[in-house]
Amino acid sequence: MREETRREAVWQFLTYSFIVLGAVVTLVPLYWIFVASTLSESEFLSSTSPRLVPGGEFFSNLQALQARENVQILGHVGQMTQYVDLGPVYFAYDFWHLWNPGAIENSIFIAVAYTLLSLVLCSMAGFAFAKYEFRFKKPMFYAILATLILPIQLLVIPLFLLMSQLNMTNTYWAIILPWAANPLGIFLMRQNMRSIPDALLESARMDGATEFQLYYKIALPTMKSSLAALAIILFLFQWNLFLFPLVILEQGKYTIPVAINQLVGAQRVYYDQIMVAATLSIVPIFVLFLFLQKQFVSGILAGSVKE
């Protein structure tokens, strides 16, 4: 019996050590970029041992990063050229120049716009597939189902030609529209919306609800948790998109991945500035992750039950 409990204790110790080691290995790079972003480049390169205590250079690094000509990571206040003077109150009406967005704002804006647009499109299409009968429903659904197995991020060559023909190169449309009708999203929405009882829709119809009201007053509210999970999938998909933005976007419209690529590929690589950029682009999503952990997990799981 004593042998047994000792074995149990050893086992528990090993299990804990394994988990803790994993947690440390996971956290160290994250902590370390933060530290590296607070050191000056000479501190970072010259020190014989990597420092684990943050320095005080974060803001000067950020300033140097912001002063770069070709890449803008964070936005900055632009030239307020026009004022309307109403006596005691005056305001600038040249709103686009109040804040020149940088790569982070671009990325957030694009990912949010994409997520919202795609949620609307996917849920509408899913609702149609789940709750209506029409000709060619099956062939259309199977066509979408078939593209689930394709790596849709890789279809960049025809998209590039198409976007040049449509005069959409170097626009945000070019990286929002191609995946807005996300096959996985349509599929997930259709699967989940099949569980909405027909009787519920029918009784709402009796009460005089229009078909569109059925969609946004009944279907959408009952799908809240699926929509949240899908939103995470879509947001991360767009947030991590690199290949096509790299091809299609030019200076001034860069998203985070393309901007960081510019910093890394530059003639002279400034490690301190790169770390500031990496910190700024990783931290906001970490915070989001901590708050929306449940949705992240259900998003991962929703994406994993494709079949």
Partner: peptide, 13 residues
């Protein structure tokens, strides 16, 4: 903690 890297941008990490 172990799932944290899921949220890291591919290029940034």
């Amino acid at each position: 903690v172990l799932a944290l890297p899921v949220s890291a941008n591919l290029v940034a990490y």
